[in-house]
Amino acid sequence: MTSKQVFYSGRVQGVGFRYAVKRIASGFEVTGWVKNLPDGRVELQATSYDEEELDAFLEDIQNSSLGGNIKEVEMNNIAPLTGVRGFTIVS
């Protein structure tokens, strides 16, 4: 199992970013969440049993219509998420 925490900077709030990420996630075997941060970034945490699946999900976000809004991506490996079902938007 592999998990990543990703911070997206740019024009990523107020443009439907979280909802688009949730829609993209539905096409992959990933669990996790996405939320807006007070500093204007968006944070995503996701887990998959297959590292290639997780990487493909994150690549699809970059290659989607959202890609033009993303100016910077910071990615960290994290411990697997526990107690998370599906992929959700966190307020």
Rank of each mutant, 00 (worst) to 15 (best):
G10A: 11
P38A: 11
D50R: 12
N69D: 12
K22T: 12
G68R: 08
S3Q: 01
L81P: 03
K22G: 09
V84T: 08
V21W: 04
V21Q: 00
G67A: 14
T2I: 07
F28G: 09
N77G: 02
N76S: 05
Q62I: 04
I61A: 03
S64P: 10
E59Y: 05
E51P: 05
F57S: 01
S91A: 08
L58F: 00
V90R: 13
N63E: 15
F87C: 13
S48E: 06
N76G: 03
V30T: 03
W33F: 15
V30Q: 07
T82C: 09
S48F: 06
L58H: 01
R11Q: 15
A56E: 04
G40Y: 04
W33D: 01
I89E: 05
Y49M: 05
S64C: 14
I89R: 13
V84A: 14
R85F: 14
E52P: 02
I89G: 06
V12M: 06
E59W: 02
A20G: 09
N76M: 05
G83S: 10
L37G: 06
S64F: 13
S65H: 13
K22P: 09
V34K: 14
G86F: 03
V84H: 13
S48V: 02
Q13G: 09
K71N: 10
K71H: 05
T82Y: 10
D60R: 13
I70L: 08
D39H: 09
E43F: 11
G68V: 11
N77F: 11
Q5V: 02
K35Y: 07
D50P: 03
N36T: 13
D60V: 05
I89W: 11
W33S: 09
F28N: 02
V6G: 00
G40C: 10
E29A: 15
S9Q: 10
S91R: 14
Q13M: 12
A56R: 12
T31R: 07
W33Q: 03
S3Y: 00
G67Q: 03
G14H: 12
A25P: 05
E74M: 07
V21R: 04
P80K: 00
D60E: 11
S48A: 11
S26K: 15
R11L: 07
P80E: 01
K4A: 01
E53F: 05
S26C: 08
V90H: 06
Y19S: 12
A46L: 09
E74F: 03
F17C: 12
D60I: 04
R41H: 03
I89V: 14
Q45A: 04
W33P: 02
F28M: 01
K35Q: 14
S48Q: 13
V21C: 06
L81I: 00
A20Y: 08
I24T: 04
K35L: 10
G16D: 10
G67M: 08
I61Y: 01
L81D: 00
F57W: 06
T82I: 09
E72C: 13
Q45F: 01
Q5L: 00
Y19G: 06
A25Y: 04
F28W: 02
I24N: 01
S48L: 08
G32Y: 12
E72V: 15
Q62P: 05
A20H: 14
A79N: 03
V73F: 09
V12R: 10
